[in-house]
């Protein structure tokens, strides 16, 4: 049963990911990315990371993708015109992708020791929110605070960047 769920989620995620880069219309790309994120959250849940699955849906599929769609609508981005693909980038991209996949298959074939143990046979880690919260506020307290400062800096930066200049421009 778990295997069936894995294959459905994984193949769905890869198909949605391919549709992100194949769609000419940016809105369709963004919606495909939402589907990718949802399947990713499902995979997280399969891996017993329920808290992260919820965060993934809330932050990525909710906040980040709404921001993307909002900007696409705001800028009125048109679908990419059907132009000739640049041969050099197409060839280089394909070569890079094939090389990377080949390397990955080599690593997976004989690289990771114990990688062939079925995950269902391992006892699941204690991944309830209480344990994660305790870790966040004890062992990872400093990174947690730093991330808070980072979010503050990002907020100020966004406000500064998107503010219109009131000064008259000297041209």
């Amino acid at each position: 049963m778990e295997a069936l769920f894995f294959w459905v989620f994984a193949i769905g995620m890869l198909l949605a990911g391919a549709s992100v880069i194949l769609n000419r219309n940016p809105v369709a790309s963004a919606l495909s990315l939402v589907v990718t994120m949802c399947f990713m959250a499902a995979l997280f849940a399969l891996l017993n990371a329920f808290f992260l699955a919820a965060i993934q849906i809330l932050v990525y599929a909710g906040a980040v993708m709404v921001l993307f769609l909002f900007i696409i609508m705001l800028l009125d981005v048109k679908a990419e015109a059907k132009t000739r693909m640049r041969w050099i980038s197409l060839v280089l991209g394909l070569v890079l992708a094939i090389f990377f996949s080949y390397e990955l298959s080599l690593v997976l074939r004989d690289g990771v020791p114990m990688g062939a143990v079925p995950l269902a046979k391992l006892p699941p880690p204690p991944s309830d929110i209480a344990t994660i919260g305790r870790l966040l506020f004890t062992k990872y307290l400093l990174p947690f605070e730093v991330v808070g400062v980072l979010l503050l800096v990002a907020t100020i930066g966004v406000v500064l960047l998107s503010k219109r200049d009131n000064k008259p421009e000297a041209k």
Partner: peptide, 17 residues
């Protein structure tokens, strides 16, 4: 059975995409 390698492969393919 689903192993760690399956997840790593899916993740690598998504990264390549």
């Amino acid at each position: 059975e689903i192993t760690l390698n399956h997840y790593l492969a899916v993740s690598g393919l998504l990264f390549t995409l």
